[in-house]
């Protein structure tokens, strides 16, 4: 098994190096054709009625390209990424999220960053977009339900934001919270979940260069159904760890509670790293279906990011710390 995994893994320099990520915006700028965006829009996938891409920005989503992740697998289409969403704040129906999300208004938006930090601050989403360089990162997303996609995110490293607020030495974990707006998010009226959604990372996981605060998709702003206007993207963990529509980031000393852990603690652990050898108690995690493919493929250790992140868990029993 190990050999097989090593075979597909690539050197960390290739994955995490910023220059290795093909940034379409930079490419277009270099070619001097940014103003030709209208041309591109002509062949862009149609946004959802009501505005799939009604984030806080004005960029037009561009069509699926020949882009691939570092393993050579093509990115999923904008249509697939924006019409098949697990976002229980709206509905448990994955196709229904895109239909319900236009009602959600992600502007104005602020993110409160506080807790055990020297410089607590509330950032407007515009501040975050201006303060930090927004880069494109192509990541695999593996859902705990055993399907996966390859997604071209835009965003910046969470570590950059954390550095800006200067965490205290006592801070050990980061806690995230989703907005609570049952009027705009009908799923939040369900009594069967302890809303609002919350998630957490260990501080070293939060500082990892792969850990992204996602603000966009396909070069455009983040659509509502994908967690507008700002969400977490942790590619080596199951998708539910990547909390959406974040309003609060808190540095804390104790391991924070998470929503899915509260719902079923034996099934959804704090770490929830993608691991083909540790099954969900009710189904196997050994294989997955890539959206757009018919055959199952084998799931990779840490979702194919083993080389980059395995050291974070050195000496830990991943069966116990699932």
């Amino acid at each position: 098994m190990d050999n097989k995994l090593k075979h597909v893994a690539v050197p960390s320099s290739e994955i995490t190096s910023e220059s290795a990520y093909f940034s379409r915006r930079d490419f277009l700028k270099a070619m001097g054709i940014v103003s030709a965006g209208a041309l591109l829009a002509a062949c862009a996938p149609k946004p959802q009625p009501g505005g799939a891409a009604n984030g806080t920005g004005n960029s037009t989503p561009v069509p699926a390209s020949d882009q691939t992740d570092e393993l050579g697998d093509p990115v999923n289409s904008f249509d697939e990424i924006t019409n098949y969403n697990n976002f229980y704040e709206f509905t448990t129906d994955k196709e229904g999220v895109a239909r319900l999300s236009p009602k959600f208004n992600p502007k104005p938006w602020t993110v409160e960053v506080g807790g055990l930090v020297h410089k607590p601050q509330t950032f407007g989403i515009e501040d975050l977009l201006a303060m930090f360089d927004q880069k494109e990162r192509i990541y695999r997303l593996r859902c705990v339900e055993a399907w996966s996609m390859v997604i071209p995110w835009m965003g910046f490293e969470l570590g950059e934001l954390l550095k800006a607020v200067e965490p205290m030495a006592s801070a050990k974990f980061v806690r995230f919270e989703t907005v609570y707006r049952p009027d705009e998010m009908p799923g939040q009226r369900s009594p069967f979940y302890p809303w609002p959604y919350q998630e957490g990372l260990r501080l070293d996981e939060a500082y990892h260069r792969l850990t992204l605060l996602g603000t966009g998709l396909y070069g455009g702003m983040l659509p509502n159904q994908n967690g507008a206007p700002i969400r977490l993207v942790v590619p080596w963990k199951y998708g539910f760890k990547s909390i959406k529509s974040i309003v609060k980031i808190e540095l804390v000393e104790e391991q924070p509670a998470t929503l899915w852990n509260a719902v079923a603690s034996n099934e959804y652990g704090f770490y929830s790293n993608v691991n083909p050898e540790v099954d969900h108690p009710r189904w196997s995690q050994a294989s997955e279906r890539r959206i757009g493919e018919l055959k199952r493929r084998e799931t990779l250790m840490f979702n194919g990011y083993e080389e980059e992140v395995a050291s974070l868990y050195a000496g830990m029993d991943l069966k116990v710390n699932y």
């Binding site: 229980y88 448990t92 705990v144 339900e145 369900s190 069967f192 979940y193 302890p194 899915w260 509260a262 719902v263 079923a264 099934e267």
Partner: peptide
Amino acid sequence: KGDLVGLSGDIV
């Protein structure tokens, strides 16, 4: 993804 006995999660 839910717990019917504990009445939590996707159980409607």
